[in-house]
Amino acid sequence: MQIRKFHVYLTLVMFSTGFLMASSIELTQSTKKSRENENELQQEMSLNERIIAEREKNRSLEIQSLDRQRDISKIEEELAKHETDAAGLLANLEEARMLAGTVPAEGAGIVVTLRDNPSSNSQNVIQNIVHEQDIWRVVNELYAAGAEGVSVNDQRLVTSSSIRCVGPTVIVNGVKSAAPFVIKAVGDPDTLEAALHLPGGVVDVFDGFIKIESGKKENIQLPAFLGDAKVGKSVS
């Protein structure tokens, strides 16, 4: 009697184990099938791997480039110490490089963040989304207030930079990024902040449509512009 009871239990348990295994195999197979086909999956994986490898490579290249820059400025500073001519030259050179945006730079300034405002009272949804014009407007206002260098979502703005909207993303220097849009500007923090808050200024204009936040910062770091901006031939 005891043994029979045991058999019944065992059968039940084994039965459910078998069922579990079967359904588990079925499930895994069906998820695989849902991926259209194996080929696509593999292609995706290899693409992902290549992207990761490329990113890794770029990171080390960036570090290498920064190291070179440091070596160059070391030599230049050494030169400036010994030669009076070189000291003046170096000051001009650094100013020109920073203005051109070819070196990373830092200084006091403000950080402005623009966000879409889905909860706005305004009926027109389009007005609650950050557009390229809104970003220019802020950037232009900052420049007028004496901002010396600006980056938008970590892309340094240089003479040839454009800001364009494509769908929900913004393209700056050919690099896509999405909201929120973070504008970093180096300059006198008080003047910059005041310029945004002028009556009729950007904060007033955006009020009720899109969200704008700004804050002064002691130290803002701007990345260097990557790449070779073509600027035509020199005129002698």
Partner: peptide, 14 residues
């Protein structure tokens, strides 16, 4: 310096 100035816009270009 002249290269940097050209890129910064401090020199005429054509």
């Amino acid at each position: 310096l002249s290269r940097a100035q050209k890129q910064a816009g401090l020199a005429s270009v054509s």
